[in-house]
Structures are given as structure tokens and as C-alpha cells.
């Protein structure tokens, strides 16, 4: 699969996840918030091949979610951009390390994003959710991450590259 095609597929998949969340079924509030599958998928790919998910894709998908899910505009996008940029910088460190380490790193990045997001909401006196709900949302996301990695590897064919390969991939895509 060529880089451009792969990139488009990933963005379309993220929007597909959003459409899935938007599907009107069961309007009763659920006790268990669903995981942030979009973050998981993007993070799983960024840790492997940062060039496949450029920052503008993260911002675009994030803003679309913010608008359609009636979230405070721009804030979660900003948190997600921060977390993904952090993960992008850690790609070289993760390469060759066991999966548990990567899982911890992504979980930590998501925790920071979530904490900053809610802290800003508190500072700006915006209503925010129950602490227990946020915690459940966090746990669901952490648990969903391995599944997203499986999807990234076997559906989107994203695998970790050797530094030299990564460089030549960059060179060819520029």
C-alpha cells in the first residue's frame, strides 16, 4: 500500500469510528462510557509510523469530533494534538522495546491529555463530567489500546520501521 493511500484509509477509518458513535441507537445514558477509539487508533499508528498520521490529520479529525459531538470547541483537539506530538517524539525510544512499555507510554499520554482537558474545563468554569465517569472512560481507553494495535497492524498493515527505512520512507513521501 502506498503512503498516501494508507494515510487516506486511516483518516476515513477515524471518521468511520465517529460515524459509528453518532449512529442513533440506545439514547439511554450508559453506565460505562465507551473508549476513545479514535485516539487509540491514531496513537497506535503514530507510535509505529509517525509519517502516516500527520499533525493536520489529528487536528482535522479532532475538530470534526468536537463539532459533531458538541464538545467544547478545540479543547480536546488541542489535548489530542499535544499527546500525539509527545508520542511522535518518542517513536525512536519505543522501537524495539516490549509492547508493555509502549502501552504504558500511550496510557500515560492519554492520562495527561485527559487531566489537562478537565483541568482547563474546571479553570474556565465549564461543566464537566463526574470523576467516576472520567476514570471509567480512561480505563476503557487503556483496555481498548491493544485491540487498536491489532487493527493497526493487521488491517492497516502498519509496522514499526527501522530508522533507515523510516528515513527513506520520509524521503519518498516528501
Amino acid at each position: 500500500m502506498s503512503g498516501l493511500l494508507q494515510r487516506t484509509t486511516i483518516i476515513v477509518a477515524s471518521i468511520g469510528i465517529l460515524a459509528f458513535f453518532l449512529t442513533p441507537t440506545g439514547h439511554a445514558p450508559s453506565r460505562y462510557p465507551p473508549p476513545d477509539a479514535i485516539f487509540c487508533l491514531l496513537a497506535a499508528i503514530i507510535v509505529r509510523r509517525p509519517s502516516l498520521v500527520p499533525a493536520y490529520a489529528v487536528v482535522g479529525v479532532g475538530l470534526l469530533c468536537d463539532i459533531l459531538l458538541f464538545r467544547p470547541l478545540g479543547l480536546w483537539t488541542l489535548a489530542m494534538l499535544g499527546a500525539t506530538e509527545f508520542l511522535r517524539g518518542k517513536t525512536d525510544n519505543v522501537r524495539g522495546l516490549p509492547f508493555a512499555f509502549e502501552w504504558m507510554l500511550v496510557s500515560a499520554a492519554f492520562l495527561c491529555a485527559l487531566a489537562i482537558y478537565n483541568a482547563v474545563l474546571i479553570v474556565f468554569l465549564t461543566p464537566f463530567a463526574d470523576f467516576s465517569l472520567i476514570l471509567l472512560h480512561y480505563l476503557a481507553t487503556v483496555l481498548a489500546y491493544p485491540a487498536c494495535v491489532v487493527v493497526a497492524i493487521f488491517v492497516f498493515r502498519v509496522r514499526k520501521l527501522h530508522p533507515v527505512e523510516e528515513d527513506s520512507a520520509k524521503g519518498s513521501s516528501d
Binding site: F21, L22, T23, P24, T25, H27, P29, S30, P33, P34, L68, L69, F70, R71, F128, A129, L133, L136, H137
Partner: peptide
């Protein structure tokens, strides 16, 4: 008709 469920775990709207 209901077009889309725009509720997140923390907001309930459509």
C-alpha cells in the same frame, strides 16, 4: 426523525 446521536458519555443529546 432522529438523525444522529451526538451524546458522548458526558452529554446526552441528539
Amino acid at each position: 426523525s432522529v438523525l444522529a446521536d451526538s451524546s458522548s458519555p458526558f452529554r446526552q443529546s441528539f
